[in-house]
Design a protein around this nucleic acid. Sequence first.
DNA 1: GCATGGTTGAATTT
DNA 2: AAATTCAACCATGC
Length: 521
Amino acid sequence: MAFGSSSLIWFRKGLRIHDNPALDYASKGTAALYPVFIIDPHYMKPDYNAFSPGSSRAGLNRIRFLLESLVDLDSNLKKLGSRLLVLKGEPGEVLFRCLKQWDVKKLCFEYDTEPYYQALDVRVKNGGKPPLTYQSFLKLAGEPSWASSPLMTSRSSLPLVGDHGDCEIFEVPTLKELGYEDTEQEDYLTPFRGGESEALKRLRDSLSDKEWVAKFEKPKGDPSAFLKPATTVLSPYLKFGCLSSRYFYQCLKDVQKIVKKHTSPPVSLVGQLLWRDFFYTVAFGTPNFDQMKNSTICKQIPWNDNDELFAAWREGRTGYPWIDAIMVQLHKWGWMHHLARHCVACFLTRGDLFVHWEKGRDVFERLLIDSDWAINNGNWLWLSCSSFFYQYNRIYSPISFGKKYDPNGNYIRYFLPILKDMPREYIYEPWTAPLSIQTKAKCIIGKDYPKPVVLHDSASKECKRRMGEAYALNKKFNGLVSEEELSSLRKRLEEEDDKKNQVQEVKTKKQKTIDDWMSTK
DNA sequence: GCATGGTTGAATTT
DNA sequence: AAATTCAACCATGC
């Protein structure tokens, strides 16, 4: 073995062989190649204090997806005469030790170091100002230079794996070995399997219906479709790099060459890939992108701090079956249709509960198998009308929105089996069902399934009012709202709301007295 | 400074 | 069911 000419590829994301520039570069002109993945116990070990099964950082479904992806990567490496070297420990320390001990001369990992990308960065960065709209992003980004250049999508061999000395090498662990128990219970198992092989299979399946690919229009999918989702579900594979976004992009362009009549960005499938890069660009160029405070793009809004409402949302017991079913799908599958994500995000924040978007963001971040820092934060900013999108009067109805796709409530019946026998006229508003119907459906509202935590009509009105006031405050101070201003607005809004509720209470009391009096007559 | 258009609504009318 | 109206705010770009 050529001494001192070995290289190491550090897999973090980019868990694939096809079109993997870091792998190509690492294996070029080297005698030995160390393909390494480091298991960070902090990321992987069970955390029993978390609100759902999983580690402190990730839900069980995403950990499972990652392990499956690693097993697949290892098997694909083995087909090429190599293997995955799994190490354990704090990644920085472990890597440093290996580099030294193995005398590695070249360390490669997924980061765009090519001059082309650096040049692109400068252009896209637009003089330090990231574009804040999709259209202006498109203009700045233009057509990628690799749009029609061949990619390395297959290879016949890899350099031999170098001697790993006395470093302890592991196989990809199972969930059980990581300390998780009862993981085979069908109930909480995402139907989506991880790995490059699965990604490429899914890509081929999606692309086989060329008409469907060409006509894809994002806002038009059916969020209640779950047996056969209305989108490609390639996002988790893109997230972990099991699928190359460039390869995906080229495949889509190839379809467009065949089917001339096709949709365009932002609604087309290519458009979806570009949304990814739009959010990466803004997120990279915006300080404090993932928070409200000290953000240059986030509206300062006096969200409330109601942990009971937040917990009800998180656990899928708001009393709105459409909302709760979506949250159950999030827990069980780690994936929902994008419009379903919109509904629950809107409901939690500006639509009904007025809870801080950062709290919802954290829940998605943990539970989604495709959670991606920039995209997740970007969408929560969007849906909460904190940035990018500002029409806070447009609120998804937790009753009628789902109904127009799924009037029979099949989606609700599947994810909330307690409601499976509720007649279709009450499935979206079970609290309106007469008690006799509830009894017959074996689901008493308030006992077997919760009453609504808020009344949508009055709650959404109150939310709009608060958003209006908050927007006015942001305008007044040109976005630079101090904490004092914000908390004084919060106080005022809550006091006004309390007063209203008191008036309402008096009214209902009066009405009740009248009713009682009438009934005695 | 001002007109324009914007992936992702709802209510109402036809 | 599809079309129309409503109401609305911002980044962009001239």
